[in-house]
């Protein structure tokens, strides 16, 4: 491939920590790759693990779920519940041969604008290596 592959990443961010952290990265004008697009949810506990499968089907090359650090959840327990669900979903995806780089999870607090940049950059760089997701994206029929 002569042209560098640019992955498309869908990210689910909790409103209180990670979304606020990403806002802070913005306010602090911290630059990072434009490949990642955010869906705001109130809590990482809202993210149904099947959203990950769906995003991969719908054309995402990778997915990120980000929530508050353990103990900081605005709703006390949501990130703990999410951690369990995604620990299993991650293993399942891995088991059917989906590259590990395609599903990512992070804890980013409202004060970690710099960490947010690192997370995005890391995820995007890994996916640039991994290339496009070709295993089971939905075929789009465009008439």
């Amino acid at each position: 491939m002569s042209e560098k592959f640019e992955p498309n990443v869908v990210a689910f961010l909790c409103n209180w920590c990670s979304y606020a952290g990403a806002d802070l990265a913005g306010t602090s004008r911290i630059e990072y790759p434009p490949n990642l697009h955010v869906i705001r949810v109130m809590c990482s506990g809202r993210v149904n693990p099947l959203f990950i499968v769906n995003a991969l089907q719908q054309g995402a090359d990778g997915v990120l779920v980000s929530g508050c650090h353990p103990g900081d959840c605005h709703y006390m327990e949501g990130n703990f519940l999410a951690r369990r669900r995604f620990a299993l979903m991650r293993e399942l995806l891995n088991f059917v041969g989906v590259d590990e780089s395609r599903f990512n999870m992070s804890w980013v607090s409202a004060s970690e604008g710099a960490k947010w940049k690192d997370v995005v950059t890391g995820v995007v760089n890994n996916l640039r290596e991994a290339g496009a997701f070709t295993e089971f994206p939905r075929k789009k029929i465009d008439w």
Partner: peptide
Amino acid sequence: FMDSQILPQIAALGG
């Protein structure tokens, strides 16, 4: 934040 509201978001961002 219903499934029926988030899934279209995913579809839009994936495309």
